[in-house]
Amino acid sequence: MEKPLVQIRNLELSAATGRGEARILRSIDLDIERGSILGIVGESGSGKSSLANAIIGLPAGNTSKLSGEIVLDGVNLLSLDESGMRALRGSRVAMVFQDPMTALNPLFSVERHLVDVIKRRFPAVSRADATGRALAALEAVGIADPGLRLASYPGDLSGGMRQRVLIAMALLAEPDLLIADEPTTALDATIEAQIVSLLSDLKARLSGSILFISHHLGLVARLCERICVMYGGTVVELGDTAAIAAAPAHPYTRALMACMIDDQVSDAPLMFIPGEVPDPVAPVQGCIFAPRCAHVVEQCLRVAPQLRDLGASRKVACHRAGEIA
């Protein structure tokens, strides 16, 4: 098999806070195969955006530790300096950020945002050609009046339009690795479907890979071959989407899937996972999910489970996986 596009090994990320050091990512091991879409799901606060930001080389300002390896085509991104990383960003690696308003510059027009991406990626492109491409990209993401919208500023756009401008920017960069952090949260189902097919096209056309972060399990199931489930800064389960959907192995994955709202209208309260996500500043002994786990035994409180093989293409970090299936 071809080597994965990205290999993440023993990635650790901590940040300094007024309350002590926050361990945000704990020993992450993860591969992103070439020409594939990997979905990342996990509870709010589990470290999905932090992982994405680490890959694209934009960790938070208060980062106190970033160690391990993120190898893209043989190059460890963590060993690159800022200018090396900047050269990669927007060309080989691009990202659609979770929070569109903070990712767009309110003082720049939509045209400037899009044309800047094109100019950086393809310096030889003429100004007129760049504007033409920018226009086509807005059209592709379903924005009406694209010609007029080029002159708009981020503050003049609706939430969903901003999100689509970010997607257009990422598509224009034609990256090898596209990271999309909750790219469709502000979009209605029709436009969401359009964006999803754009992403699939991008993968097919450019043989690039996509890291797709989403809380929308149905969408992840449709788009991604494999999924990675995160909890408390760790990977708790990894495997083929269909296999995980059919039989989730980790107790957190199961609890998560049980919470999906189905189409039944009933007066019973909605399901949720009681308890709180772990505070990244608090020390952890044993399994990080143990305090909320329905299957906890004494061993779970003492020993942190490693991510281990469960069959040929599945990994799970649970002492009791298999036993509780």
Partner: peptide, 15 residues
């Protein structure tokens, strides 16, 4: 305005 956007289902139910 979109109070549950970006929330995973396990949190959304409680909310």
């Amino acid at each position: 305005d979109e109070p549950t956007a970006g929330l995973d289902v396990s949190v959304q139910g409680g909310l």
